[in-house]
Simulated assay, not measured.
Amino acid sequence: MNDYELKVYDEVEDWKRKLTRRSGMMNRISKKAQGKINGMIPEKVHEMMTESIKGMVKTTLFGSQLTTNKDQAAGLTLAERDELMRKKTAVFQKTALVEGAGTGAGGILLGLADFPLLLSIKMKFLFEAASIYGFNTKEFEERLFILHIFQLAFSSDEIRRETLSEIENWEERKQTLVEMDWRKFQQEYRDYIDLVKMFQLVPGIGAFVGAYANNNLLKHLGETAMNAYRLRILKKAPEL
């Protein structure tokens, strides 16, 4: 492999080490509190929320499939794909920032609208990422991989490690995965963003919090997607 691929391999290994580190104390306390709250929510409500997010995601997946340019990275090297990915991430960060500022400034009602809007922006971005790295999202397993990237980015320590393991062994794992665990998917995502997004509903600071949070969430998703696809491309350590 060339020098750039060797550099990327080291970056991916460093990223994996960061992913598998234990979260900070505040995150662990927050997750524990959210777990208790989730335990108090009636099962019917959990089922309703799961079906709602499942419907939102599937609708967004369908729309993104239609609007993504499938040939935008044809013939590019890995270095060129990475550069295109960085530019695409910056564009989507700005989109999410504007959306977060707008809904945050609008108070509680518009703040609630932020959830599906931001979710659609993230899913559209992941379709673009798949296209950049040369993966065909018409294939069911590639759409499933997109959902695993999303879960890898927005989940607790335990689920993050499980998801990373599935992504590292995707060629084997995809044969046994027929559907996403939607209950786990929605609960992990809500728990991850609830604390930050709650402050977006506060009058006076909502616009700032919404813009800042959305920008950082897309930046984090961009890093996760880039390295997840790099991991699949570089299946083994480069030979020196």
Results as ranks from 00 to 15, higher is better:
residue 188 E to I: 07
residue 181 D to V: 09
residue 210 G to I: 04
residue 101 A to P: 00
residue 33 A to W: 10
residue 96 A to F: 02
residue 40 M to N: 07
residue 10 D to W: 09
residue 61 L to E: 05
residue 80 E to A: 15
residue 105 A to P: 06
residue 167 I to L: 15
residue 184 K to C: 09
residue 36 K to S: 06
residue 232 R to I: 08
residue 212 Y to K: 13
residue 158 E to K: 15
residue 38 N to K: 13
residue 117 L to P: 01
residue 25 M to S: 13
residue 131 S to Q: 04
residue 169 N to R: 06
residue 221 L to I: 00
residue 150 F to C: 08
residue 117 L to N: 07
residue 57 V to L: 06
residue 125 F to K: 07
residue 234 L to W: 02
residue 20 T to G: 03
residue 121 I to R: 04
residue 76 L to V: 05
residue 208 F to A: 14
residue 179 E to C: 10
residue 93 Q to R: 07
residue 125 F to N: 05
residue 154 F to A: 01
residue 73 A to Q: 02
residue 219 K to P: 01
residue 109 L to K: 13
residue 139 E to W: 05
residue 91 V to H: 11
residue 94 K to F: 05
residue 130 A to R: 01
residue 193 I to T: 14
residue 184 K to N: 10
residue 175 Q to H: 10
residue 49 M to Q: 12
residue 7 K to E: 14
residue 138 K to G: 14
residue 56 M to W: 08
residue 48 M to T: 11
residue 82 D to V: 00
residue 152 L to Q: 01
residue 113 A to R: 02
residue 225 A to Y: 03
residue 200 Q to W: 00
residue 157 D to Y: 01
residue 204 G to T: 06
residue 12 V to T: 02
residue 53 I to M: 15
residue 238 P to C: 09
residue 203 P to N: 03
residue 12 V to M: 04
residue 58 K to R: 11
residue 154 F to M: 01
residue 108 I to D: 06
residue 132 I to V: 14
residue 30 S to V: 12
residue 188 E to D: 06
residue 109 L to I: 15
residue 63 G to M: 09
residue 36 K to F: 08
residue 240 L to S: 10
residue 138 K to L: 10
residue 18 K to M: 12
residue 76 L to P: 00
residue 187 Q to Y: 14
residue 26 M to H: 13
residue 39 G to P: 02
residue 230 R to D: 02
residue 146 I to R: 02
residue 142 E to R: 03
residue 143 R to T: 10
residue 47 E to A: 10
residue 204 G to E: 11
residue 239 E to I: 12
residue 115 F to G: 04
residue 177 L to E: 03
residue 194 D to C: 05
residue 193 I to F: 08
residue 174 K to C: 09
residue 91 V to G: 00
residue 123 M to I: 15
residue 108 I to Y: 12
